[in-house]
């Protein structure tokens, strides 16, 4: 079976019209620059509104990820870097998508209603990367051109800028407001009721 078929190539930073044309279920290969952010980065972005990171985020993807990173000379080597659970950032994500002009979010597990509405308003998309596939996804990270907030937040929570090449993901929330996570939840709820009764 050819799992690499029908994949859409995307750039970050990229063109919002291309992102708008994506639909739930599309498989994508992302290249360019993405910026990691977990709990501390999201709280900081929402509270402090730092101008210094705006150029990194404009028309780019934020990646919910806390990597395993090893110092390599003056720089860093990323040895494992899969997604973390996105839902923890739900309180902040909608505001951050709009405030910083993000193209979208990469994470796992999907996000809630507020993020879905913000993606529809901004023409953004949620890309689902495979949780646990840390080694495979790290192999698509070809450089670490920038790193912020390491001293303040530590390795897992710092803001890493990754240069990626053919980073694989699945569109699970699109700019029409459609969410694969919602439809799987509803389907499984019906099947649960059939199994154990309402």
């Amino acid at each position: 079976m050819n799992f690499e078929a029908n994949q859409v190539r995307l750039q970050s930073p990229g063109d919002r019209d291309v992102i708008r044309s994506l639909r739930v279920g599309d498989r994508v290969l992302l290249s360019g620059f993405i910026v990691t952010g977990r709990d501390l980065v999201h709280r900081m972005l929402a509270r402090d509104l730092p101008d210094s990171v705006r150029p990194l985020l404009r028309n780019a993807f934020i990646y919910h990820c806390g990597p395993v990173a090893v110092r390599d000379g003056a720089g860093w080597r990323i040895v494992s870097a899969g997604p973390t659970t996105s839902m923890r950032e739900e309180p902040y994500q909608a505001g951050i998508l709009k405030e910083y002009g993000l193209l979208g979010v990469i994470g796992k597990g999907g996000m809630g209603r507020a993020t879905s509405i913000a993606l529809a308003e901004t023409g953004g998309v949620y890309l689902h990367a495979t949780g646990g596939a840390g080694s495979l996804l790290a192999s698509r990270i070809v450089g670490v051109p920038d790193l912020r907030y390491l001293a303040e937040f530590g390795v897992p929570e710092a803001m890493w800028v990754f240069q990626v090449s053919d980073f694989p993901a699945t569109v699970t929330m699109d700019s029409t407001g459609s969410s694969l996570h919602e439809s799987v939840l509803e389907l499984s709820r019906e099947r649960l009721a059939a199994l154990v009764g309402p």
Binding site: S80, A133, S135, L136
Partner: peptide, 21 residues
């Protein structure tokens, strides 16, 4: 298939299967 490929890569490189160890 990504899970399978990841497991093989991690074993060969002796690198974490998942970044959350």
């Amino acid at each position: 298939s990504e899970m399978r490929d990841n497991s093989e890569l991690a074993r060969v490189r002796r690198q974490p299967v998942c970044q959350d160890t």
